[in-house]
């Protein structure tokens, strides 16, 4: 569904991503792992058009989307839940969700998606009138995911959904991610520092190290790879 070929991105003279290639099959969950500064977030920002690559190619559903602006990428069904959630803090939960559906025109479909999100995250319904900035970290993460789902994505990119969230909520969020994938058939690309958790729910993983792919393989195998264990899984 998504094919990335020899992608490189740089900030001025610094190469943040230096020629990576990977693939996400339709209906799957694929994870990008790696430490701080490995280039994970940069990769996602490039995929969603916030950053322009220096070289390489991004193909989504057979179409070259490498140099499309963000709003056109979203229109094609590729939505991004950014790191740090980035909810619109002064807007209410309802308004945040409405903005997620910015490109949707079918009112009935929007209402239906919204109801679906409320069954997925009942907490959001309780907080519907509250401004997003007053929600807890976990609730904001739910809202960020809900907002992205409002765009009716075929493909969802999640950047560090476990970051800064109470431990008991992390499990809930990951369960929901699996549910979104299974029940709605939305393909997922997950970026995580919590490698254990990410490898548990994904089928395939790529490990980034200073802008390059250090190793990759089925998640089962990666979990037992000695070098990965030492680096990210705590021995």
């Amino acid at each position: 569904m998504l094919t990335v070929t020899d992608l490189s991105v740089s900030y001025g003279a610094i190469n943040a991503v230096a020629g990576i290639s990977f693939e996400v099959p339709q209906g799957g969950i694929v994870t990008l792992l790696g430490g701080n500064g490995a280039g994970k977030t940069t990769t996602l920002h490039t995929l969603s058009g916030l950053l322009k690559p220096k070289g390489g190619k991004i193909t989504f559903c057979g179409e070259d989307i490498t140099r499309l602006p963000s709003h056109q990428i979203v229109a094609r069904g590729l939505c991004h839940v950014p790191e740090g959630r980035m909810v619109f803090a002064n807007l209410s939960v309802a308004e945040n969700l409405a903005m997620g559906a910015f490109l949707q025109t079918d009112k009935a479909a929007i209402a239906e998606t919204r109801e679906h999100i409320f069954t997925l995250f009942p907490r959001l319904k309780e907080r519907i009138k509250q401004t997003a900035g007053t929600l807890s970290g976990g609730e904001q993460q739910m809202l960020a995911i809900g907002r992205a789902l409002m765009g009716r994505p075929k493909f969802l990119m999640l950047d560090e959904p476990s970051l800064g969230i109470a431990p008991r909520l992390i499990t809930t969020i990951f369960e929901k991610i699996v549910e979104i994938n299974r029940a709605q058939g939305i393909t997922i690309l997950l970026v995580e520092q919590n490698a254990n958790l990410a490898l548990e729910i994904s089928s395939h993983g790529y490990v980034l190290e200073t802008g390059r792919i250090a190793c990759s393989g089925p998640s089962e195998k990666l979990r037992t790879t000695p070098q990965l264990k030492a680096a990210y899984l705590g021995g």
Binding site: H71, V74, P82, F88, N90, M99, G100, R147, M150
Partner: peptide, 20 residues
């Protein structure tokens, strides 16, 4: 109007929901 407020609050996130 809501999109205006969204862009004012966080231009990047606004782009990510499809606002031009």
């Amino acid at each position: 109007g809501t999109a205006m407020r969204a862009v004012a609050l966080n231009p990047r996130a606004a782009q990510l929901v499809g606002i031009n």
